[in-house]
Design a protein around this nucleic acid. Structure first.
Lengths: 202, 202
DNA sequence: CCTACCGATCGGTAGG
DNA sequence: CCTACCGATCGGTAGG
């Protein structure tokens, strides 16, 4: 793809500037959500004017999509596919919770945007619907593989356990951001998984 | 208190109008969150102009507080205290999930506002922190009472189970609003509680 | 509770 | 990637 072609100096500078703008937008959207964030706020964080931002991204909505795309790319690098790994994939969810505790801005971005995007007219609505459907399929597969390997306790149903685990992780993030969570997210997720797995996680 | 004193015609009309405005604001905040909702949107829903709204509520922030206050009052009528009831209180959480499935606008209001209000500068931040702390204390007490009555399975710790249950219910609401939840919220909550209780819920 | 208005801020465009 | 600008919209106020 074109991403792997060599870039001349000008293209490289353009890429760096785009990355800088996406960084700034990510931070701003995380703090205030999409609707309440202005292009001028984002531009100031990136050290330019707001028409400068619009030179690189044609609309505010295109910038939002670039932010979401960036996060997906990073996530894919960190956790490639993984549904077929069963129990190991579930352990990976607990590790993801631990990782999230070092990524306050990203957690805030997703908590705020996913709630904002439940409205059907939100520009990121379709993105989040697709993301939840894909995540649900992956986690359901992980539970199914774990069950078929004899790793789940009796009565744990993949079709119930999967939306439960996703909901637990989403809900913990709100309490964690609010500062009212009395334990670490990773600990609570691991405890939850340990009520379902035959062999406890560390 | 002054609420129980008789009202003359003018005061009664004022109360009705205030209630009408709070209804409109609740619907608008639920659809778009607090920051993205304008007083003109709310006023139009209530059949008046936006200075008309500001005649009854001095600022947009005061109107937000009235919306949250109203919801608390209704919640207190529906579920008085309840922490000391132990197992019955936990069953009440499953019933609350069922009730929420008939209250889309209210669920959306809380999902959007609670995410928005994780930011320390949001006008409803302190309200939500207090609400989560109070809810956590109530649910922890319910689990503790249930355990002391021998109603909890081994290994279920009130201090872990309480933030877990709250997170589960919050997270389910996002998936439900997104339209990607493959089962009812009430069913998933009941299944979760049934992994913790000695005697299963209906 | 309305009309009329205020300064501030929004996303986006023109032109360089 | 900037300056300068556009029309639209914001929360809030004056005055009745």
């Amino acid at each position: 793809m074109s991403d792997s072609a060599p870039l001349d100096g000008r293209q490289q500078r353009g890429r760096d500037t785009r990355a800088l703008i996406v960084d700034a937008a990510m931070a701003q959207f995380a703090e205030s959500g999409y609707r309440a964030s202005s292009l001028r706020d984002i531009a100031a964080r990136a050290g330019m004017t707001h028409p400068g931002v619009l030179y690189h991204f044609p609309t505010k909505e295109a910038l939002l999509m670039a932010v979401l795309q960036r996060r997906d790319d990073e996530g894919k690098k960190r956790h490639p596919v993984l549904g077929h790994l069963g129990r190991e994939a579930l352990a990976g969810m607990a590790r993801a919770a631990a990782h999230n505790e070092t990524q306050g801005a990203m957690v805030e971005l997703y908590a705020v945007l996913s709630a904002e995007a439940t409205g059907r007219d939100h520009p990121a609505h379709d993105y989040f619907v697709a993301r939840y459907e894909s995540l649900l399929a992956t986690v359901t597969e992980a539970y199914t593989v774990a069950r078929d390997a004899g790793g789940l306790r009796d009565g744990v149903e993949p079709d119930v356990a999967a939306p439960q685990l996703i909901a637990l992780m989403d809900g913990l993030q709100v309490q964690w951001l609010m500062g009212t969570l009395p334990r670490s997210m990773a600990r609570i997720v691991a405890d939850h998984l340990n009520t379902q797995l035959v062999e406890p996680l560390p």
